[in-house]
Design a protein around this nucleic acid. Structure first.
Lengths: 234, 234
DNA sequence: TGTTAACTGTTAACGGTGTTCACTCTAGGC
DNA sequence: GCCTAGAGTGAACACCGTTAACAGTTAACA
């Protein structure tokens, strides 16, 4: 019987589900090793049969959240068969909606620093792979947009040799797009991420009580930079 | 004698200095109540004569860091008597330099969510006041730039009534600037903050090994939006 | 000046955390 | 049917923030 492995996988899933529950209800600090064990009616040391440390458990949770978000956004964008611009618009709005609906998860996934300061051996963890899959969503879509209708982009001379060199190094991930186009794509992601971070972390409440209108206006702006005729705000 | 208050103020400063030291050397998690007490040769309960809780100690530390950053940037911008655009450029670069030089402090000050979800009684803490002073730095400078040489800005119709309403509510903080101009100013801050956050938190390392060139290009771009002739990148 | 009150620090303790070790018991494989 | 690997337990360790009761010093006031 393989019921042994099956049982192990089941409890492993239960552990992560309990951790997720605690994260949602009480924020990042609430998902402690002992609390998770309590949730399952187990003693704390029992969890060490499944995760080598509390940190590893959190890491697995982050990986799951990344994948959940990725598939959710894929479903969202896949359902719409319209033009690619509308797809990107859906993706951006979907990410914001998810972040606002799950602020604790967002804070855990995107608010914690990536531990890659001195990049000797990358030691590509499953969490990193999940993050790459997530990032690939946007890269892929932007590359499709570019190849369908190339948008105006700054020339290499405007960007400077250093930046162009770094951007062209990423060209393979963008299906051979030129540096200027990758630059604009990076802008899109940077501004989107920054906007959502500020809204979720409450840095925007002090000037804008409800950032929805501002977000929409910004989405229109950054979409235009990619040659998209986004839905106009207002 | 007032030596009693003097002594109290001295130890209070020592406590915060020790906390700061721990923050720098070991990150946010290293600045614990017991660790701070250990650093001063005191027992943990002694600190409760100075701060009502560990959280209050952290709050005081954040306030100090805000003020330190604010005065540092004021000195930086005050020294240069050139045009206001150069001042803003110095400010933005100064903020980035500070964030990269003190990543732990930056993470503590800007990376933690502002606890203002349902804004009933704001209960304006010293930390909030310090944050306002810091934000005021940029608002003030941008307002000066606007009044010296008004830059092109989107019309109200382009932004939509909801957004215009919110922006004009902030008009007094921007010395009576119109909504479109405030919108562009907000863009400047949003993009600057997002960029620095991503760089410090390592979200940019995976695509750009060294974000300096990208940051410079972005600074040029967002400065142009405010009608400034920034130093060109490259 | 002597008394009193406030202030600063201590020790002991409580409940909480992540983690390790030695142990038991049960289920699967030979 | 033995035997081993795995799952789970209880006790313990070292840490954490916090509280309560207590002691010594110092400022203020009658």
């Amino acid at each position: 019987m393989v019921t042994r492995d099956r049982r192990r996988a089941a409890t492993l899933a239960e552990i992560k589900a309990a951790a997720r529950r605690l994260l949602v209800s009480g924020g990042t600090s609430a998902v402690g090793l002992r609390a998770v064990a309590r949730e399952l009616g187990l003693t704390p040391p029992a969890l060490y049969r499944y995760f080598p440390s509390h940190e590893a458990l959190i890491g697995a949770l982050v990986t799951d959240l990344y994948d959940e978000l990725t598939t959710a956004l894929m479903d969202l964008a896949g359902a719409d068969d319209g033009d690619l611009g509308a797809k990107l618009y859906l993706l951006a709005n979907g990410l914001r909606d998810w972040a606002l609906a799950h602020p604790a998860e967002f804070g855990l996934v995107f608010g914690t620093a990536v531990p890659n300061p001195e990049g000797d051996e990358h030691e590509v963890t499953p969490g990193h792979q999940a993050a790459m899959r997530f990032g690939g969503l946007f890269k892929e879509l932007v590359a499709q947009i570019w190849h369908q209708k190339p948008f105006q982009h700054p020339a290499d001379e405007q960007l400077g040799t250093v930046l162009v060199e770094q951007l062209t190094a990423e060209s393979e991930h963008f299906h051979g797009m030129p540096a200027g186009a990758i630059y604009l794509s990076l802008n899109y992601w940077t501004r989107l991420y920054g906007l959502i971070c500020m809204e979720v972390f409450g840095q925007l409440h002090w000037v804008l009580p409800d950032a929805a209108a501002y977000f929409e206006a910004q989405l229109y702006e950054i979409g235009q930079a990619l040659g998209l005729d986004c839905p106009e705000p207002g």
